[in-house]
Amino acid sequence: PECADQRVLAKHLYDSYLKSFPTTKAKARAILTGRTTDKSPVVIYDMNSLIRGEDQIKCNYLTPYGEQNEEVAIRIFHRCQSRSVESVREITEFAKNIPGFVNLDLNDQVTLLKYGVHEIIFTMLASLMNKDGVLIADGQGFMTREFLKSLRKPFGEFMESKFEFAVRFNALELDDSDLAIFIAVIILCGDRPGLVNVKPIEDIQDTLLQALELQLKMNHPDSSQLFAKLLQKMTDLRQVVTEHVQYLQLIRKTEVDMDLHPLLQEIYKDLY
């Protein structure tokens, strides 16, 4: 009966995940490997292909501030921000569907999201990446890693640590149903700074961890120690977030006119 409960929980989280996140890993991998009847993504690999791509890709967040005349590196950085804000909205909706989450102290709900959202953003970004680049605009475009690396300092290094993490993480070959539970586990971490009431958070996470372990055993019977390997990735994710925050601090120092979205300002303030 306990296993049955864990399977119901896994199914519930997977359904919530599909409702909350429009671009699934399954869709992204189909596009990246050419196993889809949809149009191939527009490949952006230099300034000319970027300009062509901007005409071809229809997406609200391509020009979020309506500033086509902004410098390319800053424009791309702004688009990353807009996508991050949208991701925070999606993750919040997903979190509210984790059984027990909305019954937690409201301050703790805020803390869990504040510390969890970027770890989840970089987990899900890995689904859109391969070693050569990243899908953008819901799979309409593919921006190469080399092009991102060629952007002027300090923007050129901004995505490298995310690619390095993605290559290692994608080697685990998780699918969307695994990721749904893993993301819930990340949100319900009882060791986030400033939590008021840790016990109920740890209780929910224990239940989620049991569901995740069973899910991985059933979905990946030949992959030994996958559960342990995946838990290890949570440490790596914290490192990626720490580096990301350091990059942002550098960018805010060197780019005096750089504005940060108010939602991201809230999240980054006193983060690490």
């Binding site: 925070v88 805020v110 809230e266």
Partner: peptide, 21 residues
């Protein structure tokens, strides 16, 4: 804490309600 995170707080309070399991 929620006072310092007005937008996050609003996202948590607004929009769609949670699904019962």
């Amino acid at each position: 804490l929620k006072e310092k995170h007005k937008i996050l707080h609003r996202l948590l309070q607004d929009s769609s309600s949670p699904v019962d399991l």
